[in-house]
């Protein structure tokens, strides 16, 4: 009797645990469902062709245009600036931490870098708007108060820890034997790092880059605060523009009734954003997995 009771209890608990694990699938399904449903409604009113090719995004005006290109240009530009900052610095830092720094230095610096990741993004937004932009304006007089450059740089600094930390993990996992082979031939540390370790850890490093890109694409508050709210099809980093994420914030701040076209636009924009980051995340996951299979 007691046994039967115990067996049932075990099965019930396993069921509850399984349901919790399954819940994560429902979340993904929920995201896709909500985005898909509202986007479908949106495309009943706006043609996909206009959405993808129109060069103006003015759903909040009387003369409505629904071209997503300006928003994606904004996202592309800020992301590109962020990556230009984060990629070289993150990579150099990772090489330094993995190949040059002592264990003690590594164990102090890595947690310190984690603090950077713990700072809320709204704080970075404040910093970009009220600290970085004024400083940049001293060197670039043409720079507007809202622009892509300043939030791009700040986002880049935000992303450095991701790239540095994950790339360092990948380089650290490269077997010592590979390095020793090169050292035995009389190579300098720098040569070993750039010609042996980096190529060997390439897929792991690439995974960290892509994750960094995905973070920059999805970043919201920094650009919403410091980049402005003017959708503009431009690659000029000095003028105000608007990213996909900032647009969603802008609409959400107003009181947009359900069912209106303005309400649906944020889901269509979100769908685009989700698709891009989804692809990036999967590629990053796959690269990381491939790296693990080789070395771990």
């Amino acid at each position: 009797m007691r046994k039967r009771y115990q067996w049932i209890k075990e099965k019930l608990i396993e069921g509850a645990l399984f349901a919790s694990a399954l819940f994560s699938i429902f979340v993904t399904a929920g995201i896709i469902g909500v985005l898909f449903f509202e986007t479908y409604e949106f495309f009943k009113e706006v043609s996909i062709l206009d959405f993808l090719t129109d060069t103006q995004w003015t759903p909040l005006f009387t003369d409505k245009h629904f071209g997503i290109l300006p928003l994606f240009a904004g996202t592309f530009l800020t992301t590109a600036i962020a990556i230009l900052v984060a990629l070289p610095i993150g990579l150099v830092s990772a090489i330094y931490l993995s190949e040059y720094a002592s264990d003690r230095a590594r164990n102090t610096v890595k947690p310190a870098l984690e603090i950077l990741a713990a700072v809320p993004t709204v704080v970075y937004g404040y910093f970009a708007l009220l600290f970085v932009t004024p400083i940049l304006q001293r060197f670039i007089p043409d720079l507007s108060g809202f622009n892509a450059l300043s939030p791009g740089i700040v986002m880049g600094i935000m992303i450095i820890p991701i790239i540095a930390s994950l790339s360092e993990d990948a380089m650290h996992a490269v077997p010592m034997g590979l390095r020793e082979g090169a050292y035995a031939l009389g190579a300098a540390k720098f040569q070993v790092a750039t010609r042996v370790v980096v190529p060997a850890a390439f897929s792991g490093i690439a995974a960290s880059f892509i994750l960094g890109i995905s973070r920059a694409v999805g970043e919201t508050m920094v650009v919403a605060i410091a980049a402005g709210q003017q959708p503009r099809l431009t690659l000029n980093p000095l003028v105000p523009l608007e990213t996909v994420t900032a647009y969603i914030v802008q609409v959400s701040l107003g009181d947009t009734p359900t069912g209106t076209i303005e309400y649906k636009t944020i889901f269509a924009a979100g769908m685009g954003l989700f698709t891009v980051t989804f692809v990036l995340n999967i590629v990053s996951y796959w690269l990381k997995k491939r790296f693990r299979e080789v070395y771990e």
Binding site: S24, V27, T28, G30, I31, V34, L35, F37, E38, L211, S214, R215, V217, G218, E219, T220, T245, I248, V249, S252, I266, F267, G270, L273, F274, T277, F278, L280, N281, I282, S284, Y285
Partner: peptide
Amino acid sequence: ANLAGVPSIIYGLLGLGL
């Protein structure tokens, strides 16, 4: 792994819709 990388604003849209 993918959910961990979804931008937070997308969760906002899920919350809004759901």
